[in-house]
């Protein structure tokens, strides 16, 4: 699958088939995450792969943004101490940004493997940290659910019209049509 197809066809999947995800496929996703860019190359991320049903159930109970029980969750955590020591006072923000880039790599790699994913930010950080037994300086920033999607696949939530959000040279410059973009909204 080429990258642009993966980008356009990816949807946030919130219903998964019961089938588990092969460990080597989860390994591919984590490898993709590790090779994401890193601000100042701080390399402050940790990835905790959760597949045990009792752990997933416990995570779900403190994650209001998690709507069904997925076969796997990858928790993307930032070592804030390392982020600050390598990235200066802005290190925490860099760590957070790194987590987002890593998450996007996971989503696209999963799409290429035929897997569905959803990024989850609505969870109680302290409780997830406790459940995952992270040390104090390691903070879970994003959870990514992973599994084989249940049919039917979700419809794409609309994007704003391109003419509203794409600008050429300056904010007031209408950019969409000059860049060959017509319409918008649907992929």
């Amino acid at each position: 699958m080429d990258v642009i197809t993966a980008i356009l066809e990816r949807r946030s999947v919130r219903r998964f088939a019961r089938r588990g995800v092969e460990p080597e496929k989860l390994g591919h996703l984590v490898k993709a995450a590790i090779w994401a860019p890193s601000g100042s190359n701080i390399q402050a991320l940790h990835f905790i792969v959760v597949t045990a049903p009792d752990m997933l159930t416990a995570l779900k109970s403190v994650a209001p943004g998690l709507f069904s029980l997925p076969p796997a969750v990858i928790a993307i955590c930032v070592d804030r101490q390392r982020a600050m020591s390598k990235g200066g006072t802005g290190g925490s923000l860099l760590g957070m940004m790194d987590a987002c880039f890593a998450a996007q790599n996971i989503l696209l790699a999963a799409q290429a493997e035929g897997l569905g994913t959803c990024v989850i930010r609505s969870f109680h950080q302290g409780s997830v940290r406790t459940l995952l037994q992270c040390p104090q300086e390691v903070v879970p920033e994003l959870l990514v659910t992973v599994g084989y999607p249940e049919e039917p696949l979700p419809r794409a939530p609309r994007r704003r019209p391109w003419s509203e959000v794409v600008h050429l040279e300056r904010y007031a410059g209408a950019g969409a049509s000059a860049l060959g973009l017509e319409g918008g909204g649907d992929p």
Binding site: T57, A58, K60, S61, V62, A63, P64, G65, S122, F123, H124, S127
Partner: peptide, 17 residues
């Protein structure tokens, strides 16, 4: 008990959501 955790976690999150 799990539902109780969910309700408390939701209340906490909704402060900023």
């Amino acid at each position: 008990k799990r539902l109780l955790c969910y309700l408390a976690a939701s209340a906490r999150g909704l402060l900023t959501e």
